[in-house]
């Protein structure tokens, strides 16, 4: 399973293992659409992510939309320097809390 999710309290943590690209589109989507209650905060853990492409950026935007757009609280964490670089080229720090 490339994408795993874990709800605790008001938080939903989504973890992406290996390549984060179009192939995990469906899994990523159902990881947050599947839960019954809407969490307040989303954590996307990219600690085990080896690679991230532009369709992954698109999936993050979809999550942001789902989580309330501008009012969404999404923390993208454990980014490797390479992944951080990709996120910062697209200036996604403006839209997400990246660390």
């Amino acid at each position: 399973m490339a994408v795993t999710s874990n709800a605790s309290g008001n938080e939903l943590t989504i973890k992406v293992n290996g390549k984060f690209d179009f192939s995990c589109h469906q899994e990523f989507r159902s990881s947050y659409e599947g839960s019954d209650s809407r969490p307040e905060k989303y954590i996307v853990d990219l600690g085990e992510t080896s690679y991230l492409d532009s369709s992954a950026l698109g999936m993050l935007l979809l999550l942001r939309d789902y989580a309330g757009g501008d009012s969404a609280q999404i923390h993208i964490k454990n980014c490797s320097p390479e992944i951080k670089k990709i996120l910062s080229i697209s200036n996604f720090e403006q839209l997400f809390d990246v660390s």
Binding site: I89, S90, L95
Partner: peptide, 17 residues
Amino acid sequence: LPSSHLPLGIVENDKYD
């Protein structure tokens, strides 16, 4: 000359730098 802006088409104009 690095990227310092969001790509086109993501946010509305009034939030776009």
